[in-house]
Structure formats: structure tokens, C-alpha cells
Design a protein around this nucleic acid. Structure first.
Length: 267
DNA sequence: CGTGGGACCTGAACGC
DNA sequence: TGCGTTCAGGTCCCAC
């Protein structure tokens, strides 16, 4: 699923129910989900720890458990939700963490790309992630977006530069900013960089307000669908008319990712 | 430093 | 109905 708005929605939907509970026992149905740690080591580390906080960093979900961190990445098809111990209809559940209130934190992931890591430090995240886009100021975007010859669309997907923007919201933001995705980042004028920053924030915030995009796999923790997909301007609209000028939306491949834009509105 | 390709995985959609 | 192909919100790794 998951870009920043979807991950943020998952965190908001679970934080109140999770914080204050205590981890009892984890179980897995696919060993690689723990990223190399054995289930026994995982359980020895987390058993009996109270969940003290839950937050998002980039596209990662961080659950602090009294000094250690459960770090979850949903990748393409991950879902995170609370279930009653009796339930078992989801055939893609790869990990569950039993809690002391009788609920289970379930991680479901059809494609097995996602991971549930247990770590004593979040330093590794800070090493691979750039700043959070929602708290950046115009001057920060102007600075960050300069000095790269890469196509701006590809640049936006680099988590080391800005954390949390993915394929959907990169396309949406560039459309709102009126910038063609293939433009070299270092050819953008200052005003365009500032505009792009503002459009990134606008796109992400609107998507959070719409509780994420349920195109295929993504669901909120309560099982409901987000509505962000109802508001896409270009993503997934190849061949359909631009809402602004009627020109058919162009779809190309950039950085090996499907890329959508309006040839007329974006320059 | 940047790019392109492939790997990791499975399911849904589509063409025949 | 069934089979083959293509594509998918992400990230990592390697060759050039």
C-alpha cells in the first residue's frame, strides 16, 4: 500500500488501542517476516514489555515497547490490524503478536515483501531516511530539491532525500505543481521547487484526510477503505482526460515505475 | 554519482 | 474454463 498517508492512517487507527497493552507472545507463519531474527529470540526480547508509544517515520511504523522497537514496513500489500484470537479468515497473516487484553496485533501481507523487525535503536532508520515532508518549510524544499541531475520524479521516490513519498503522491504532486516528471531536478527554478514542496505537502495532507488510497490491498486497521483514490488527478488515469484541460493523461515508465502526467498542463 | 536490470513474492486483471 | 502474460502502492543489490 503504503505511502506516507496510508501508513499514517494505520498508525492513527491503532495507537490508542495499542499503547498501554503488554506483549505476551508472537507467532509467525513465514520465517522471513522477522528479517533474520529467530522467533525465540524475538519472543525473549519482547515478552512482557508494555507498549509505550506508536508513531510513523517515513513509510515505517514504529511501536515502542518499553525500550525496544517493533519496526514494521508494509511494502506493497501489508496490512496491520487488531483481531480477536478466535478469528482466522485472513490467509495472508504472516505475524501476530498476542496482547494481554486478549487481542492480537496481526500483520498480513500477500506478497511477503513486508517485514516486522525488533530493534533496540532506530538509528538505522535515520541513516536511510531523509526529513519528514509535512514539517519542512519552503526554504527546506528549495534547498533539498537542488543539485541533482536525476529526473525529479525519480528524485522524489528516493527516501534518503524526502521520507514517505511514493509512486502515487509523486505523480500527484508533480501534476499539481505543473512540472513534468522527467525534468532534471537541478533544472527546476527556485519558484518551481518551492511550488513542488507546497504541492507535496498538499497532496499528502489531503490523502491523510481521506484516510489513504485503497486501490487494491490497502485497508484501514478497522477494515474500511480509504478514499484518497477518489481524488487522484493523474495516477492510474492513463488515457483519460485531464480534469484541467481535457488532454489524455500520458503514461510512461520512469525509474522503472509507471508515471502519469498531463503533457499540456505540466511543463 | 547515476541508471538500468533483476530480485524478492503473490494475486488480480486481461487476452486468447 | 483455463493458461500465459503483465502489472502492482517498495526497497535492495549489482553491473556498467
Amino acid at each position: 500500500m503504503p505511502e506516507l498517508p496510508e501508513v499514517e492512517t494505520v498508525v492513527r487507527g491503532l495507537v490508542d488501542d495499542l499503547v498501554g497493552t503488554t506483549a505476551v507472545e508472537a507467532s509467525i507463519s513465514w520465517h522471513k517476516v522477522l528479517g533474520g531474527m529467530s522467533l525465540s529470540e524475538f519472543n525473549e526480547t519482547i515478552r512482557g514489555r508494555k507498549i509505550t508509544a506508536m508513531f510513523r517515520r517515513g513509510k515505517y511504523i514504529c511501536i515502542e515497547c518499553s525500550g525496544v522497537y517493533l519496526v514494521i514496513h508494509l511494502r506493497m500489500t501489508g496490512r496491520l490490524y487488531l483481531s480477536d484470537a478466535a478469528e482466522g479468515e485472513d490467509k495472508w497473516v504472516r505475524f501476530t503478536l498476542a496482547l494481554d487484553n486478549g487481542k492480537n496485533l496481526a500483520f498480513s501481507d500477500a506478497r511477503k515483501f513486508g517485514r516486522v523487525l525488533l530493534t533496540r535503536s532506530l538509528d538505522f532508520l535515520e541513516e536511510k531516511l531523509g526529513p519528514e515532508p509535512l514539517t519542512l518549510k519552503p526554504a527546506d524544499f528549495i534547498q533539498i530539491l537542488k543539485g541533482s541531475s536525476r529526473a525529479v520524479k525519480v528524485f522524489l521516490l528516493d527516501q534518503k532525500k524526502i521520507a514517505g513519498v511514493g509512486n502515487i503522491y509523486a505523480d500527484e504532486s508533480l501534476h499539481k505543481a505543473g512540472i513534468k516528471p522527467g525534468r532534471p531536478t537541478n533544472k527546476l527554478r527556485v519558484a518551481e521547487r518551492e511550488k513542488l514542496g507546497a504541492c507535496i505537502q498538499e497532496s499528502l495532507q489531503a490523502a491523510i484526510d481521506h484516510e489513504g488510497a485503497s486501490i487494491s490491498w490497502y485497508r484501514k486497521p478497522d477494515g474500511g477503505r480509504g478514499e484518497s483514490q477518489e481524488h487522484f488527478l493523474v495516477y492510474g488515469r492513463g488515457g483519460e482526460p485531464c480534469y484541467t484541460c481535457g488532454t489524455p493523461i500520458t503514461k510512461i515508465v520512469l525509474g522503472q515505475r509507471g508515471t502519469h502526467y498531463c503533457h499540456k498542463c505540466q511543463t
